[in-house]
Design a protein around this nucleic acid. Structure first.
Ligand SMILES: [Mn+2]
Ligand SMILES: [Mn+2]
Ligand SMILES: [Mn+2]
Ligand SMILES: [Mn+2]
Lengths: 227, 227
DNA sequence: TAAAAAAGTTAGTCATGACTAACAAAGCAA
DNA sequence: TTGCTTTGTTAGTCATGACTAACTTTTTTA
């Protein structure tokens, strides 16, 4: 059993590296995650990640062979899931109780997720009556550390004529999130794909009587479920 | 005018030093605060404080002559007051909404006070409907940075026969706070001083039909108003 | 399959914020 | 006023987590 002492003892940096690794491995479902990929994701140099990975290996949170791919141990994974739980609970709190908008919650949650207190997060969960999803549509891991992914594909993977429902958005970019709201899209919006343009992969979509053309990059960050 | 850019840019350490200096200078009303006193308060070495003070002086938050006493600039003071505002608002939130007890709030608030977001703290304030006092009885500075102290003296300064009301407690020690609750004291308790023992300065007090003998050290941390 | 490109590693440096040990200045007391 | 004690400062070290530059290994491609 992973024991209570683990969560503490970790620096903010160590936590951020483990979370990033989890996001690349599990959320992006990558076949292989390498040192440089992690570096790019975290916007640090490959030397920095190499160094931190070394440390996380001695602490038994990460496993890898020299020049080989990176993997999380069960313990490393558990820490990452707890961070994601904290992050998403805080985002939900900011959004539902403190008048934060879609695009404002992520940055502050990035800080709040590192506050060390079991009671704080479990009480926050209770206070909000155990919410299932965060403001971007993602599932919040429960107190037992169970992590589930909502079934979804990217809008960019659809073809002409497909009809889908927006179930989640990538919350990494403030500008992207603002733009999503601006054009009138929100969680649960029903979207119809009118046309996929071959030469630049831009997509013409329709939702609530609005027709918009969005880029491939935009569509990559919108997660949907075909209806 | 102190401008918005200030609050950010500061490390957790820098913030903690400024807050500590404020607490020694203003809250403890010390005539003179020296380097070693600050070191002892923060439980670091005099070399560490000397080093940090040097940095805070170049950043114009602290003023002092070599071998002279430490003082805060208006800007340094403003940063400290904002930290105290954040600390007390978070303590109030934890206590009133998340089932934290008197003695649990301080430690977590020590972390939460360093979260950087103007919106977060002002919205938290609004969410709680602009509370006046924190769970230990201290006044919460408002968004304009106005800092006020509640009129109070220590229980230990009273003499036989005095009757007072408990208005605040020192929140630094978990054991102390737990003991205060255990014997049945709370904010607003009316206390009568039955006897002050000369040889060890212990005090016999009465409150809600209870009679207790408390030590000088205990009485130093209980703040009262004579009625 | 050999050269080139990409990925990963190592060495050395820097800033931050701790520390100890040694030293200097102030403040007090005899 | 002279020493003794307290207070403050400086120098040098360490851990953490960044960085660049140089090097090595692996993978790709011609
Ligand atoms: Mn987020
Ligand atoms: Mn983070
Ligand atoms: Mn407190
Ligand atoms: Mn603090």
């Amino acid at each position: 059993m992973t024991n209570k002492a683990n969560l503490n003892n970790l620096t903010k940096s160590e936590e951020d590296y483990l979370k990033a690794l989890f996001q690349l491995l599990i959320e992006d479902n990558s076949e292989k995650v390498g040192n440089n990929q992690l570096a790019e994701y975290l916007k640090v140099s490959p030397a920095s990640t190499n160094n931190m990975i070394k440390k996380l290996k001695t602490k038994n949170y990460v496993v890898s062979e020299k020049y080989g791919k990176l993997e999380l141990t069960d313990e490393g994974r558990a820490i990452a899931v707890r961070l994601i739980r904290k992050h998403r609970l805080w985002e939900t709190f900011l959004y539902n109780y403190l008048n934060f908008s879609w695009d404002e919650v992520h940055e502050v949650a990035e800080q709040l997720e590192h506050i060390k207190s079991y009671k704080l997060i479990d009480e926050l969960d209770r206070f909000m009556d155990f919410p299932e999803k965060d403001p971007h549509g993602e599932l919040i891991p429960n107190a037992k550390g169970e992590y589930k992914v909502i079934p979804k594909i990217t809008l960019s993977s659809l073809v002409e004529g497909d009809v889908c429902k927006l179930v989640a958005v990538n919350d990494g970019s403030v500008n992207f999130l603002r733009f999503v709201s601006e054009i009138g899209l929100a969680l649960s919006s029903e979207i119809k794909v009118l046309e996929v343009r071959e030469f630049d992969k831009s997509i013409r979509i329709q939702f609530n009587d609005t027709v918009e053309t969005v880029t491939r990059k935009f569509a990559d960050n919108v997660f949907v479920k075909v209806v």
